[in-house]
Structure formats: C-alpha cells, structure tokens
C-alpha cells in the first residue's frame, strides 16, 4: 500500500543539477602514486564494505603501510570518518552547547542577528514547525555550511584551471579557481560564494571564499554571517589515503576575530569505483516524511 502511495506522490527530484563537464584530469605535475587507481591496487584485503548503492567494495587493510601523497593533488573520492551527518549541533569545533569556549566571538551586531535565527538543534532549538532555517525549504546550504553540516562523501576533480567539488549531501557542486586569479572586489552574491585556491606547499591546498549569499547560515545552529564573510578552507593531504580539512570563519561585522569552525576533519580515500548515492532535498520526499513524523519529536 505504501509503495503505491510513494509511486504516486514522489516525483523526480526538483533540484536538478546543471551538467558539469570536466576536461580530463591533469596529473602531469604529479610523480607520486596516484589516488584512486593506485589505492585500488593495494586493496588486497578481504574486508568488504558496501557503497551508497549497496555494492560491495574492498576497503584498504587497516594495517597497511601509508603511501606518500601525490604532489599538488587532492583529487579522489573522500569519505569523512562517520557515515552519519556531522555538525548536527553546529560547527563541529564550535557546537552550540552553551559552553563559553564554544561560543563564536560575536560582535553586538552578530548577537543581534543570531537572535533572529531559529534553529532546530543546539541550546536555542525550536520545534521543526517554528524554525526559519532556510534549508527546511530546500534552499541550498551554501558556504560554509556545506562544510559544516552533513558533510558526507566529497568527490574532487582537478584540472589546471580549477578544482571541482561534488558534495553528496544535496548533490551540490562548486568550483574553485586555480588559474591565479584574485577574488573579485565586489562580487554578486552566490549561494556558494566565489572561490579561489592555491597550493601553499606540495600537500596543502588553501581555498578562499567571499561573495556568499546572506540568506544562508554559517551552520545548523544558526550562526550568522554578513556580506563581509571570508572563509578559508585548508585541505592538507598527509599521505595518499587521507585528507584533512580545516575551516576558518572571518566576518568582521559578525565576529570580533576569526574562529575555527572545523579543525582537521580527516577524510579517507575511497576506491575509484565507489558509487556515491544521491542525497537530494526533495520537497515531495520531505512531505512524506513530515506526514509520518511531523512534530512528534523535537530536535532538542
């Protein structure tokens, strides 16, 4: 009976992505072992796991010898340490738990704007029907929230001119320019901002983002940002199979000083055949969920 209902109600996802085409991945600059394929060759263990579509794959032996990271290369399919979404209570390094050390350094304007957000988690949580979280309407999370809430599998592609990141959650992509351009002086706001990146050493890629859309929140706890938000993402690849991400928030209108929202979150490289499951904010699917669950429980 339910299947009949689902068949009739669930329509194809409304959030369709524009086609994103990539020129062939250029790794000419890299002489070290490559990511996905080389990783597959070393996966001789019988330790089987399932990808997001339930297809088995062989995971890397836990006791393997770590291979060096390729130079200037963060491409690959990267999985965060926990299969569940992260950042339920706000930025992982700054959860909204009421502890003074976890409160971002708000300006008076930042506190004023904070009071206008009504999140469904953290110490200020309201019941779902009272929230004004833009994401409940399936608005894009934008940056930096894409890093700070429900960060799941990320596929990274590189060309000489740009790095593209494909996020599982929301089935979102973004482009980071690496052709040497500067950040624009007065950019038109974008949900995911305008990003440029550069290699600060052989294994560390730093991304700067500005021009974000003020409709978005910094994290699920409703931390605010202004048009002066400047995000730094630091991707460090200590060895072939791991990638660390650190995110720093700087917004002089909202915060008296920069603060670290994510501190060296470790991702593990997945095989190149890993099939990432779509996770789309589909209004019809959420409607079905709400019909069954609704306000029965709160996010508190």
């Amino acid at each position: 009976m339910l299947r009949a209902v689902v068949t009739q109600v669930v329509v194809p996802a409304t959030l369709i992505f524009s086609a994103l085409t990539f020129s062939p991945v250029s790794r000419a600059q890299s002489a070290a072992p490559q990511s996905g394929a080389a990783r597959d060759q070393q996966a001789t263990s019988t330790d089987q796991e399932l990808d997001g579509w339930g297809h088995p794959f062989t995971s890397l032996p836990k006791d393997r010898k770590l291979a060096p990271a390729p130079r200037h290369d963060i491409s690959g399919i990267w999985d965060p340490p926990h299969m569940s979404g992260l950042g339920v209570f706000g930025a992982i390094s700054m959860p909204d738990d009421g502890k003074p050390e976890h409160q971002p350094p708000y300006t008076s304007l930042g506190l004023e704007k904070l009071r206008t957000t009504k999140p469904t988690s953290g110490i200020r949580a309201v019941v779902p029907s009272e929230t004004n979280d833009p994401f409940v309407l399936c608005d894009p999370q934008g940056m930096p929230r894409e890093d700070l809430y429900e960060l799941r599998t990320v596929q990274i592609f590189q060309t000489p001119e740009r790095v593209a990141m494909l996020y599982q959650f929301g089935r979102i992509w973004r482009v980071i320019w690496t052709d040497g351009r500067e950040l624009p002086k007065d950019p038109e706001p974008r949900w995911f901002g305008y990003s440029v990146g550069k290699w600060v050493d052989d294994y560390t890629f730093v991304v700067e983002t500005t021009g974000t859309d003020e409709r978005t929140w910094v994290d699920r706890a409703g931390r605010p940002h202004s048009d002066e938000l400047h995000i730094e993402e630091r991707f460090h690849r200590p060895d072939r199979d791991h990638l660390e991400l650190t995110v720093t928030i700087d917004d002089p209108k909202m915060y008296t000083k920069p603060w670290v929202a994510l501190d060296k979150l470790v991702f593990e490289l997945q095989p190149s055949t890993f099939d990432v499951r779509e996770m789309i904010c589909s209004p019809s699917e959420y409607e079905l969920y709400n019909k069954m669950m609704g306000d029965r429980i709160s996010g508190k």
Binding site: S84, V88, F89, T120, S121, P128, S129, T131, D133, F135, V136, L137, C138, C281, P283, Y286, E287, Y289, N290, M293, G294, D295, I297, S298, G299, K300
Partner: peptide, 11 residues
C-alpha cells in the same frame, strides 16, 4: 510549514 522536519539523534 517546513519541508524538512529532520531532526537530530538527540531527540
């Protein structure tokens, strides 16, 4: 009415 009444494990 939120489309997403998704909540955390803490519930």
């Amino acid at each position: 009415l939120p489309l997403w009444a998704h909540h955390g494990f803490a519930a």
